[in-house]
Design a protein around this nucleic acid. Structure first.
Lengths: 347, 347
DNA sequence: TAGATGTCTGTTAGCGCTATCATGCACCAT
DNA sequence: ATGGTGCATGATAGCGCTAACAGACATCTA
């Protein structure tokens, strides 16, 4: 039985529908729909009438019904490991910057670096039938890859380029980033090199940097002299602690490579506290190019991960392919730039 | 005309529906729906059959259709000013922590501190008919407040408690935070006090802290001796620059109150660089209690804004009232704790 | 054995919108 | 007048799912 106007009056607190606006303005639901979506020809008089009615009622359209009827959803799923990492909010900023000029809307899902959570988040997101997916990394469970492939929408994997994407990819090569840092360190004359990083075995990008780093050192006939790993806690404090630990154990180290800028900054502060000459006695470098840390006593050597640009480019791809069944398999590899800062000698 | 099986075979790439699973497993759509939602009684044999069919097809349910039919959406809209601020990711973490144990899912919208963007984001979010809204601050446009009131779902305003909420509120009193900091500073014997903050007129919480701060000073017969504002750029660098500027202009200041920890940290690093004795010659304090900064040379005096706890409590309220038409107007005011650190003398 | 009860499955009718086609009407050229 | 051409609006039929009810059948009770 179709709902009658009488019932509407009876139940004051029922959420508003197109019909309410239609009745209030004296035109059909279809015409109201056209006005509210700015689609099709509607006379100026009707348009005004409808808009006024909608506004005075406080009508908010139901996108769920709209999406179901039109088979179009203006959401873009963005799946990242964490929001606490500073890196990811920056990627998000890049994404929003581009999507703000379209009618697309990012929706964020967080995996905490856990593949099974990624799978669950992806499933949840895809069940809303988004117009595209931006997902961090190239490593996913088989089930996740299958879902991505079967979704029939543009997929952009971001941050990393070392591996086989499902569809398009926008990122940097972390292997290469590790290699280049190694080369710069060796070239500067350092030989007793320590590595400090996270314990997370599932941070594939950190792992790849480490692999590239050791590989390039090996080519120069060098090996990592010592290493130290951490998990949890404040990165700045951990950076200090790890630096103290590694230098106590292996005092003759002349370079410390940190897997991220925050622990690098902790190490830098530790060295300065202890009166260790940086970069003379010990050189330091991190990774990410966090602008957040710009005001430290010395600028830490680092390598920019192109976070915002990656976000922008991924969003551009999604926007360009919105409505398509794929992002066209494009491959955008950005080149991270080494920033010497004041903690890595130039030669 | 209802879609026929034949058509399905013809069009290979069509997205899967319940009907496909139903046909593949030989039971009705309704039974498939029951299995996939774990609702109602289904025999073990049928359940297995259906799950296998769904899995082998790679079926992902369409929540849009499900939500429309059931009039239930498991999303919670979370509306915050920014993701770059560090404070908000922490709130998000608290929210997720609680919602992860429910079937609710947070969806984030970012306003960039702009009321008109808040209005737009809110409209967009409400059009998805979420089960609840968590929104930062108590200051909204009239239209936004009207939408919130009319939504007929639980609303929790967070971070701030100085004002009139639409429904429930979870936060701290920033006026009081400012007052307490002022009292502690005066009590420690400082008298020539400078204030450094953001230029943003729309950061109401920072404004309230400032107001509380000056008000409490006035009670002690004191006034702010000088002040300095900034916008944009790296907060650490800005903290240094502002500190230099204010101390050049007013060299006899003996305390600097920063409106956030990041610029406070910049100021601290500047003072240490210049050999200024902290907290002897000059005392320093910030606001937020960012754990991120724990490894600095000296621990900055600050006041914890209870971010994670606010997130958790807000999420708990939403979860408790999911399905209701309001969050019951509860009022949770948390008490920020002063942390003296090593930059504010104790008396 | 009739009826009551419980377990499982299916049928029907929407949810609130939009795509699509149909229609009414004014306006023009013929 | 005839029949095109626009333009503005309305009627109809779903989108893919679920609530609510309606069976079918087996098992139990008296």
């Amino acid at each position: 039985m179709p709902r009658l106007a009488q019932e509407n009056i009876a139940n004051e607190n029922r959420p508003l529908t197109l019909r309410d606006v239609s009745e209030a303005s004296g035109v059909s639901e279809m015409t109201v729909s056209r006005v509210l979506r700015n689609r099709g020809d509607v006379s100026e008089a009707t348009r005004t009438k409808v808009l006024e009615a909608a506004k005075s009622l406080g009508y908010v359209p139901n996108k769920i019904a709209g999406a179901l009827a039109s088979q179009r959803v203006n959401l873009v799923a963005v799946i990242i490991p964490s929001l606490g990492n500073l890196v990811f909010p920056e990627v998000m900023t890049g994404i929003s910057e581009i999507l703000d000029d379209t009618d697309l809307q990012p929706v964020v899902g967080v995996t905490h670096y856990k593949p099974e959570r990624e799978e669950a988040v992806l499933y949840e997101m895809l069940s809303w039938r988004p117009s595209g997916v931006i997902i961090a990394g190239l490593e996913h469970t088989d089930a996740s890859r299958a879902m991505l492939r079967a979704a029939g929408i543009p997929i952009v994997e971001i941050m990393d380029s070392d591996g086989e994407p499902v569809d398009a990819v926008v990122g940097i090569s972390h292997r290469r980033a590790g290699r280049e840092m190694a080369k710069a360190i060796v070239q500067a004359g350092y030989t007793r090199i320590g590595f400090l990083g996270t314990k997370m075995p599932l941070d594939h990008r950190a792992r790849k940097r480490f692999e590239g780093f050791t590989e390039a050192l090996a080519k120069e006939g060098l090996e990592i002299a010592d290493q130290e790993f951490y998990e949890g806690g404040s990165a700045l404090v951990k950076g200090r602690e790890m630096t103290e630990a590694i230098l106590t154990r292996t005092p003759d180290l002349d370079f410390l490579y940190y897997s991220n800028d925050m622990i690098g900054a902790g190490g830098l502060l530790y060295c300065l506290d202890k009166g260790i000459a940086v970069p003379g006695q010990i050189g330091l470098a991190g990774f990410n190019g966090l602008r957040l840390l710009d005001g430290l006593p010395k600028q830490l050597a680092t390598m920019d991960a192109c976070r915002a640009e990656i976000g922008r480019e991924a969003a551009r791809l999604i926007a360009a392919h919105a409505g398509d069944t794929s992002a066209g398999g494009e491959r955008h590899v950005l080149t991270p730039k080494l920033q010497y800062g004041a903690t890595l000698k130039r030669r």
